[in-house]
């Protein structure tokens, strides 16, 4: 992942739900040392950034297309509106999936734990030394 690609990969708020979904890139191999692990991490990051670059490029193209259509005809505006709705639906769906996932992972456990009391916080602090 180069600095150049990082600078080019500025993320907008509307990209976040889509890009926040992990699972596109496999976990890096652990290797035989911390150095080997870090090399594998760098390769995974490069792959991740490459995926993000593709998404970013597609978004820019989509934005340009929208502007051109809007400038030309009312029909273009209608298409843009539909695209915005689709984008909103996609974002809502991404949020729903993320919430479902979070609920599955944490819901019951977090609820069972309840609020952290001062006494509990103190006990943890003592355990840490």
């Amino acid at each position: 992942m180069s600095n150049q690609s990082t600078d080019a990969g500025l993320i907008s708020s509307q990209d976040l739900p889509k890009l926040a979904e992990a699972g596109h890139v496999a976990a890096p191999t652990v290797g035989n040392s911390a150095a080997e692990l870090r090399e594998a991490v760098q390769a995974a990051l490069a792959e991740q950034w490459s995926l993000m670059g593709i998404i970013d490029t597609g978004k820019k193209a989509s934005d340009l297309g929208k502007k051109a259509a809007d400038a030309l005809t009312d029909k273009g505006k209608e298409i843009e509106d539909k695209a915005i709705h689709r984008e909103k639906d996609a974002r809502d769906e991404a949020h729903r999936k993320m919430n479902d996932d979070k609920a599955k992972k944490h819901g019951r456990e977090a609820g069972a734990h309840g609020a952290t009391t001062n006494a509990f916080a103190r006990a943890l602090s003592e355990l840490r030394g």
Binding site: M1, T6, I11, L16, L19, A20, A22, G23, H24, V25, A27, P28, R38, V41, Q42, A44, L45, E47, Q48, W49, L51
Partner: peptide
Amino acid sequence: VDELVTAFFLKHLT
């Protein structure tokens, strides 16, 4: 590794 903020912080460390 491919969660955005995790990747961003790992890149900074690298």
